[in-house]
Design a protein around this nucleic acid. Sequence first.
DNA 1: CTTATTTTAGAACAATCGTTATAAAATTCG
DNA 2: CGAATTTTATAACGATTGTTCTAAAATAAG
Lengths: 193, 193
Amino acid sequence: MARPREFDEQEVLNAALERFWAQGFDATSMRDLIESTGLTAASLYNAFGDKRALYRKSLDHYVQRGIRERLARCRDLPPRQALEAFFQDVLCRSLEDPQHKGCMLVNAALDVPPEDTELRQTVAEVLRGLETFLCQTIAAGQADGSIRAGQPAADMARHLLAVLTGIRVLARVRPEKALLEGAVASLQDVINP
Amino acid sequence: MARPREFDEQEVLNAALERFWAQGFDATSMRDLIESTGLTAASLYNAFGDKRALYRKSLDHYVQRGIRERLARCRDLPPRQALEAFFQDVLCRSLEDPQHKGCMLVNAALDVPPEDTELRQTVAEVLRGLETFLCQTIAAGQADGSIRAGQPAADMARHLLAVLTGIRVLARVRPEKALLEGAVASLQDVINP
DNA sequence: CTTATTTTAGAACAATCGTTATAAAATTCG
DNA sequence: CGAATTTTATAACGATTGTTCTAAAATAAG
């Protein structure tokens, strides 16, 4: 019927994602996105809608690529190792981050304007997903004795979620090895049986 | 010599702070600040410099009023109570926050453009101040036996700093009592002797 | 080939951005 | 009072914002 697209939707989303990730929503202009994606304003609007919609789709893409897949990989490990691998991974990502972009999801949590309920719900849901992953892993570890059972798994998961989030924020301003490793080292007292 | 100012510098800073706090740097326009402070563009530029300078002074004002004074109040308590009061306070502030503004310092950590080294250093230094407060308090508690000595005080302080930061971020997107209280509840396993 | 439909390219839009120029109003010192 | 000086108020500046319009290019179906 009509002329086919010259671009790959996923690649464009990746390019937009990278720019939003590095600069945040407000600081990224439509012209930045045009430059990064290589296509024109009309094409962007035609394919993705307005700026906010493009941001949302970029964030979804990031969550899928950068979080969901990682969780899936951890689920194959025994609970204790899953937790350790997970936090080791957070450490690596935070330290090998020359631009100090941090985690796009955590950035989004503060980047979102308070009145944008929809986007906030999206971020909240992903965080809830992380929390239930942690909770299930902890509960499994408590069942097999590899993780301390002094506290309810739900509370421990919330604690770990806070540590995870905090590290991602701290790393943006103070990307110091000692700081980040110290923050997770004391986790031993929480999870050791 | 000349006409005196019609405004109180501190009050203006408070008004600007409130706006920056609620909306962030980028999303706050000079016209917003004119509206909130009640004075004109020329007066603002004359008294405080450009927008970034005004933001920095607002943040300094916030740190002085909202953090330094609180730390000073905690220093008078015995170490264990100081920590508990501190985190209880964080919980209160996060839950009694109808606008979900969070902590302006934490917001600033992600709000700051990555190239603005100066402002980033400022934020980093305040965070370092928090860390040394926590570290000294923990060390004192370890000395008098009220706080567990299993981990070095420095690492525990880093852990607590991450929890603190994380809570402030989580509260903006998920201001749920159970989540925030659960995150601090598991701190017992870290600090209990 | 023609027609229909969609994507392109690039200019153009009004609105808003941070900032400054201009001149009137207000005060202290001589 | 008059001179000097600073703060006010208002309007305006060019630049950039997100978004859309116009027309040319390109393909699939008839």
